[in-house]
Design a protein around this nucleic acid. Structure first.
Length: 563
RNA sequence: CGGGGUGUAGCUCAGUUUGGCUAGAGCGCUUGGUUUGGAUCCAAGAGGUCGUAGGUUCGAAUCCUAUCACCCCGACCA
């Protein structure tokens, strides 16, 4: 490709909209352009990278026995009503009507469509297992799109769905996909971590997320430095010892004027926060709840939502409930269902709100003075908590979720009546798995992890081109040398970009660095001695090489990169 | 949805407080010259319904009202 002809509008200045480094570099390198909030066009350079990644994905998934197909973007509402998600999914689901007023949505994911397909076509356990995938555009009307293609409203996703007659078969496939994912991200030279995850609205049992570690990651991950344990903070649990407490005081009301927060309470009474019990009020679709935590703990709303089996919950912070907000507590209260964190139940006693303005109650014994309907882990795990496997302290990191695999079970097949006939002649719902990779997000994550002050530093397998040839000066001699190298490299299938623009050397060097192409060949002042310079973008190492040995040199470099 | 902010040239931004002639700068773009190993320098030039609509005024980028878009924080979310 000739740079003179290649549409690659690089930007010298930083676009104001760009928040994170990957977004800045994708815009500056001419990979993407924004069309509207969370909606992007991929320009030729960006699309080349995306196709590189897609090829890797296809190779690994085909190897794992999955079959590629393509499903529609436009989904009839009936299928979503069958699965129940027409109601469950919020405004994130883009809904529309056709000219005949029939309802549709734009697919944010494809469980309904694939289940619909399979229930019509597969009847026997003998057909199973099967694993389908597609690489396709997804639509989610995100509340707040940001970070460029990292959280977009329209984005490309690889999604796969597997169908099984037994749990064991699902486990086996899940394992295969897990390894395929590892291969994919390994091949992209990404530094990632696999963590246990919450399943969210997609549902299901086991679930792992593939997190590319990056400070700008939106997800927080807890991991153990000593064993294999790693989990998304939404899911992470911990082994926490509740310290022995001093002798229980008499149960009595304490006058605590205007003391509404745990911090104020602990200070006012000169007790540690962990001797208090925090009462949070939540409103869900099925009722109103009191959630109890140790004073020093934070709520994990994902866990809470799961424990309550609610779709939507909202913390009540105003005084719409006509209770003395700041002084509510579980003792002798009416109207709320009480859910208590495990750790609260291990406390010998605690201080709670007294349900009377300006009063708290001390000496409250969990399980005796109040009896929760639900006891569960609803606390946010923190850095330093004990690992649930080995008790060593957990650490935190930030990550970008690039892949997510789920064991769905029969949630969709059951709801949508997708059954097969098992060996015993009985009708059973398909057991399903589901596996996603954010394609654009992975590209962004790769940049997030591979860049320097000058620009992108592509890992070889994702690079839009492997080599960029710079011809400095306009002499025929230099142009001829550059052109020969350019042609010879293409002859051995090395994707090469030749910067033949009439630009100053500085401009070409800067653009080459910005684009991040792994090898840069400079044809300039050494050309008359029959030599050129090769520079490796990642290490910055340069080497002067004889013109006749360039192709061989590149070929060997390529082999070292395992291609 | 709540709070805050921004919309002026392709990009980054000044000008708005205190209304006043023909709306500016840098970068980019075009032309000519110059230079050629890290974003040269010189000269000439093109490019703007000042987000949109309405209002106030002799006069609006500037003041008022409405509206749209975008951005940030929160809620929310694979």
């Amino acid at each position: 490709m000739l740079m003179k002809e290649f549409f690659c509008p690089t930007l010298r200045e930083l676009p104001a909209e760009a928040e994170v480094i990957s977004q800045q570099l994708m815009l500056r390198a001419g990979m993407i352009r924004k069309v509207a909030a969370g909606i992007y066009s991929y320009l030729p350079l960006g699309y080349r990278v995306m196709k590189k990644l897609e090829t890797i994905i296809r190779e690994e998934l085909d190897k794992a026995g999955a079959q590629e197909l393509l499903m529609p973007v436009l989904h009839p509402a009936e299928l979503w009503k069958e699965s129940g998600r027409w109601a469950e999914y919020g405004p994130e689901l883009v809904r529309l009507k056709d000219r005949k007023e029939r309802e549709f949505c734009l697919g944010p994911t494809h469980e309904e469509i694939i289940t619909f397909l399979v229930r019509h076509e597969l009847k026997s356990y003998k057909d199973l297992p099967l694993n389908f995938y597609q690489i396709q555009t997804k639509m989610r009307d995100e509340i707040r799109p940001r970070f460029g293609v990292m959280r977009a409203r329209e984005f490309t996703m690889k999604d796969a769905y597997s169908f099984h007659a037994s749990r064991e078969s699902l486990d086996e496939c899940y394992e295969k996909m897990y390894h395929a994912y590892c291969n994919i991200f390994n091949r992209c030279d990404l530094d990632y971590r696999v963590v246990e995850a919450d399943t969210g609205p997609i549902g299901g049992s086991d679930s792992h997320e593939f997190m590319v570690t990056a400070d700008t990651g939106e997800d927080q991950v807890l991991y153990c430095g000593d064993c294999e344990y790693a989990a998304n903070i939404e899911k992470a649990s911990a082994r926490v010892k509740v310290k022995e407490m001093p002798v229980k005081p008499k149960k009595e009301m304490l006058y605590t004027p205007d003391i509404k927060t745990i911090a104020q309470l602990a200070e006012y009474l000169s007790v540690p926060e962990e001797h208090t019990i925090k009462t949070l009020i939540y409103r869900g679709e099925k009722g109103e709840y009191m959630a109890l935590l140790r004073g020093n703990d934070q709520i994990n709303e994902v866990k809470l939502k799961n424990a309550l089996q609610e779709n939507e919950i909202e913390m009540v912070v105003d005084d719409s409930l006509e209770r003395p907000m700041g002084f509510v507590g579980p003792v002798d209260q009416k109207g709320f269902k009480i859910i208590s964190d495990n750790l609260v139940m291990k406390m010998d006693w605690g201080i709670t709100g007294a349900n009377e303005k300006d009063y708290h109650l001390t000496g409250v014994i969990p399980g005796q003075d109040f009896k929760p309907q639900i006891i569960a882990d609803i606390r946010l795990t923190q850095s330093g908590d004990g690992c649930p496997h080995c008790s060593n302290p957990l650490r935190t990191a930030r990550g970008i979720e690039v892949g997510h695999i789920f064991k769905l079970g029969t949630k969709y097949s059951q709801a949508m009546k997708a059954f097969f006939i098992d060996a015993d002649g009985k009708e059973r719902p398909f057991i399903m798995g589901c596996y996603g990779i954010g394609v654009g997000r992975t590209v962004a994550a790769a940049i997030e992890q591979n860049h320097d002050d000058m620009g992108i530093v592509w890992p070889w397998p994702l690079a839009p081109f492997q080599v960029i040839v710079l011809s400095l000066g306009a002499s025929d001699e230099i142009n001829n040398v550059a052109e020969n190298i350019y042609k010879e490299l293409w002859n051995i299938d090395v994707e090469t970009l030749w910067d033949n623009r009439k630009e100053r050397p500085g401009v070409k060097f800067n653009d080459a660095d910005l684009l991040g192409i792994p090898l840069r060949i400079t044809v300039g002042k050494f050309a008359k001695e029959g030599k050129i310079e090769i520079k490796e973008r990642a290490s910055g190492k340069t080497e002067i090489v004889n013109i006749h040995q360039v192709v061989q040199w590149v070929n060997q470099f390529r082999k070292r990169k395992g291609e």
